[in-house]
Design a protein around this nucleic acid. Structure first.
Length: 569
RNA sequence: CGGGGUGUAGCGCAGUCUGGAUAGCGCGCAUGGUUUGGGACCAUGAGGUCGGCGGUUCGAAUCCGCCCACCCCGACCA
């Protein structure tokens, strides 16, 4: 490709709307262009890089025996009503009507469609196991698209679905997909961490995410440096620390004028926060829920949502709390009736806690569970925090930000049972197909690769996903000598099968070098009257400072060796 | 959806508070010339519904109202 013909221009200044690095560099390099919030065009260079990633994915998918197919973006709403996911996706689902007023959705994912497809095509255990995938555009009406390609409303996703006869089969498949994913990310030049993930309200057994550690990441990862434990913060557990077991004392009322928060309470009574009991009210699908947790901990709303199996969860308003006859600020688990009560298991470890008295300016001392109150549900709903103990080994947990580039998920039989996808086993018995689903956000992977591979000059593409491998930079191209020699080299390299971006523009050296750096092409070959004096070109790797002269007749061999063998930083 | 911000040429911005003449600057773009190994210089030039609609006014980029778009924080987000 000649740079003089390339569509897409580099920008000297960063467009003001771009906040994170990958967004800035993608815009400045002329690789993407925004159309609307969370909607982008890929320009030729960006599109080439995206296709590189797609092809790596295809190779690794095919290697584990997965078959590529293509399912539609346009899907009937009834299909989604069949699984109830029209409700769980809620407003994130793009919907539309056709001319006959039939309601359709733009697919945010394809479990429903694949399950229906499989139902029509799989009848016997002989058809299993099966791995099917596609690379397709997904639509999600995100509440807040952000960060360039990080979170968009229309995006390319590779989604793979596994169909197995039983759980053992699924476990095996799951492992093999994880291996493929690790290959994909490694080959794309990304370093990722696999973390335990929330499997959502629909249940399912295991779920893991592949995180690219980067400060711009939207997800918090809780991990342990001494064992392998790592989890998305919304899934993570920690040791809540056992409190000293004390002899339960009789309940005592204390005056606590204008004391509302746990901080104020612990300060006023001069006790640690862990000796208090926090009461929080949530509205779960518009139903008031009372939540109790030890005062030093915070509620993990993802865990709570899963426990309650609800779609919408939010903090209840003060008015809603009062309407139920309770006092926010000194609400009490004692004597509470008529609403659902959930408690974190931390309340079972403390004793003689201070809790609300359910009247203004009053708290109760020496509250003990289960002596003094009862709840409907006790389970872990606490937010794990860095600094606390690792649930596996007890060491202190750490926290970092990550970009979720992949997600693997054991679905089990939820979809196959709901939509009736079953097979006959060896004994002629009908069984539901056991499913798994596995996604990679292709555009997000591209952005993450930039977050991880750049410097102050621009992108540093890993060779396997670079839009072009070689930037042929002809300086003083208006001289006949350079013009003809660079044209010859350009042709020769192309004939040799190299992907070359030929900077044939009449521009100063500075402009060309800066563009080469910004675009992040891994190998730069510079030809100028100076290098031609010794019948050579200068070869420089994007991630190194040093350049070297390579004789013209050795260029092809040298590139061949290095690209196949891989340059290393 | 709540909070904050921005909208003026392809990009980055000034001008808006305090209304006034052909709406400016830098980059980029075009043409010509001089340059040529890390974003050159000179000259000439093209390019604007000042986000939209309505209002106030002799006069609106500027004041008022409504709306729209985009960004950030949060809520939300298989």
């Amino acid at each position: 490709m000649r740079l003089s013909n390339l569509f897409g221009k580099t920008l000297r200044e960063t467009p003001s709307e771009a906040e994170n690095i990958s967004h800035q560099l993608l815009l400045r390099a002329g690789m993407i262009s925004q159309v609307a919030a969370g909607v982008y065009s890929y320009l030729p260079l960006g599109w080439r890089a995206l296709k590189k990633v797609e092809n790596i994915i295809r190779e690794e998918m095919d290697r584990i025996g997965a078959q590529e197919l293509l399912m539609p973006v346009l899907q009937p709403l009834e299909l989604w009503q069949g699984t109830g996911r029209d409700l769980s996706f809620g407003k994130s689902l793009f919907t539309l009507k056709d001319r006959r007023e039939r309601r359709l959705v733009l697919g945010p994912t394809h479990e429903e469609v694949i399950t229906q497809l499989v139902r029509q095509n799989v009848q016997s255990h002989r058809d299993l196991p099966l791995l099917l995938y596609q690379i397709q555009t997904k639509f999600r009406d995100e509440p807040r698209p952000r960060g360039g390609l990080m979170r968009v409303r229309e995006f390319t996703m590779k989604d793979l679905y596994s169909l197995d006869a039983d759980e053992e089969g699924l476990d095996k498949t799951y492992k093999s997909v994880i291996g493929a994913y690790q290959n994909i990310f490694a080959r794309s030049g990304l370093s990722t961490v696999m973390v335990e993930a929330d499997s959502g309200a629909i249940g399912g057994k295991d779920s893991h995410e592949f995180m690219v550690i980067a400060p711009s990441g939207e997800d918090e990862v809780i991990y342990c440096s001494s064992c392998k434990y790592a989890a998305n913060a919304e899934k993570a557990q920690d040791l809540k620390g056992r409190m000293n077991e004390e002899e339960p004392l009789p309940i005592e009322e204390v005056e606590t004028p204008r004391i509302k928060t746990i901080d104020e309470l612990s300060g006023f009574l001069n006790i640690p926060k862990s000796k208090t009991l926090k009461a929080v009210f949530y509205s779960a699908d518009e139903e008031l829920v009372f939540v109790a947790i030890r005062g030093d901990l915070e509620v993990n709303e993802t865990k709570l949502r899963n426990a309650l199996r609800c779609h919408e969860l939010r903090l209840a308003s003060e008015e809603e709390v009062m309407r139920a006859g309770l006092f926010a600020g000194s609400a009490s688990p004692l004597g509470i009736t008529g609403i659902k009560r959930v408690a974190d298991d931390s309340i079972t470890t403390g004793s003689n806690l201070v809790a609300g008295a359910n009247k203004p300016d009053t708290h109760l001392k020496n509250v003990n569970y289960p002596r003094d109150f009862d709840v409907d549900l006790v389970l872990d709903i606490a937010l794990a925090q860095a600094g606390q103990g690792c649930p596996k080994c007890g060491e202190r947990l750490l926290s970092t930000q990550g970009i979720e580039v992949g997600h693997v998920f054991k679905l089990g039989t939820i979809f196959s049972e709901t939509l009736g996808a079953s097979y006959l086993d060896r004994d002629g018995k009908k069984r539901p197909i056991v499913m798994g689903c596995y996604g990679i956000g292709v555009g997000r992977l591209l952005a993450a690769a930039i977050e991880q591979n750049h410097d102050e000059k621009g992108i540093i593409w890993p060779i396997p996903i670079a839009p072009y491998n070689i930037y042929l930079c002809a300086l003083s191209i208006e001289s006949e000598e350079v013009a003809s020699a660079s044209e010859r080299l350009y042709e020769e390299l192309q004939e040799g099968g190299f992907e070359v971006l030929f900077d044939d523009r009449v521009e100063s050296a500075g402009v060309k070098f800066n563009d080469a750096d910004l675009l992040g092409i891994p190998i730069r070959l510079t030809m100028s009257p100076r290098t031609l004096k010794s019948q050579a070109v200068e070869l420089k790797l994007r991630w190194k400072n040093q350049a070297e002269l390579v004789p013209l007749e050795e260029v092809s061999d040298r590139l061949e060796k290095n690209i196949r063998g891989g340059f290393t930083a």
